[in-house]
Design a protein around this nucleic acid. Structure first.
Length: 318
DNA sequence: AAAAGGGTCAACCGCAACCGC
DNA sequence: AGCGGTTGCGGTTGACCCTTT
């Protein structure tokens, strides 16, 4: 393995580049091209290692570099590409002319990552978060109606209360789905079918399901209404939707993964077979849930949900 | 006004892939 | 095939700047 060129010479300058150094590098490359980065510093009269020169040129001095804020389109594209490629910054950068891998990496770590976390989406997997902190924040939402009831005695705006109720409902569903998806408590449950049954029982709109992280469809649905979670998730799906329809330069075969992966039962090669299996699993799902709820001392909410018997399941599509 | 804390981003480091001998 | 040199990549660091207290 070749030794690092910068590690063997302590006399070489490190740290921020001065305008004079920049000018020397630009002048040299304009005259002679890049050539060998190892030889370049000496030839250009720079007391830097070749690696440092290459980095300075590719990330900062190159004439075709686009500087300034990332546009919304670029942001959408980065999120989409990241969901397909992961932390392959250089590969992502090839889809954004004028942007460097370093710039995209920084933008991801400082902006997008945080944004996704706030939306309740894991920036690594692009799926709803399952970490403890997030579940704790969901649990806070669960109590939103009770809190708003207390405040409503002091004339809380009705719209705010509705929003709190709605947020709590979404939190419940997301929590349920996360429990199912972690496959620790109920390993045999088909999450997609369970979600469908839950939707039926709650008379939820399709987007409400998506805001909660329920999806068995590659293409997100159009957004609908309000509440903090709803708006955030809506923005995320909207972003990915736009990018899906607008970006054709992602290599074939790299279709975007579903936010919540399909359960093994529904991921068969034969689509019909998968669908049938999901339907026939409906009753066993409810049996399992019923048992789960029976074990829960005060799970009245979940009981309410599940007591709506699945005797005549209507097809749910979203 | 000053200190503390947090955010941003250029630059560095170490590793791995690539290439030529 | 094996070795050494070079380049590219991704993670991390630290200086600088802005905001908050």
């Amino acid at each position: 393995m070749g030794r690092s060129p910068s590690s063997d010479d302590s006399n070489l300058k490190k740290g921020p580049w001065t305008p004079e150094e920049d000018q020397k590098l630009i002048d040299y490359i304009n005259k002679n091209g890049c050539g060998s980065w190892r030889a370049l510093p000496k030839l250009a009269g720079l007391n830097r290692c070749g690696k440092s020169c290459r980095l300075r040129w590719t990330n900062y001095l190159r004439p075709d570099i686009k500087r300034g804020k990332f546009s919304e389109d670029e942001e959408r594209l980065i999120i989409n590409l990241h969901s397909v490629l992961g932390n392959k910054w250089s590969r992502i950068a090839t889809h954004l002319p004028g942007r460097t891998d370093n710039e995209i990496k920084n933008f991801w770590n400082t902006h997008i990552r945080k944004k996704l976390l706030q939306m309740g989406i894991d920036p690594t997997t692009h799926k709803p978060r399952t970490d403890l902190n997030h579940l704790l924040s969901l649990s806070q939402l669960l109590f939103a109606p009770q809190i708003s009831n207390l405040i409503s005695l002091n004339s809380l705006d009705t719209a705010l209360k509705l929003q709190a109720d709605h947020a709590a409902q979404l939190a419940k569903i997301q929590l349920l789905l996360q429990i199912i998806n972690t496959n620790t408590l109920l390993p045999n449950i088909d999450s997609t079918a369970a979600a469908a049954a839950l939707l039926r029982s709650q008379n939820l709109q399709p987007f409400d399901a998506q805001a909660s992280g329920i999806s068995n469809n590659q293409t997100p649905l159009p957004p609908s209404n309000s509440s903090a979670i709803n708006e955030n998730s809506k923005a995320y799906f909207d972003m990915r939707n736009k990018s899906l329809s607008g970006s054709s330069d992602v290599e074939a075969g790299n279709s975007l993964p579903a936010l919540v992966s399909e359960s093994p039962e529904t991921c068969t090669n034969d689509n019909n077979q998968g669908e049938t299996q999901a339907n026939t699993n409906d009753s066993s799902i409810f049996e399992a849930w019923q048992k789960f709820m029976d074990d829960e001392p005060s799970g009245t909410y979940w009981k309410d949900v599940l007591d709506l018997t699945p005797s005549s399941p209507s097809p749910v599509s979203w």
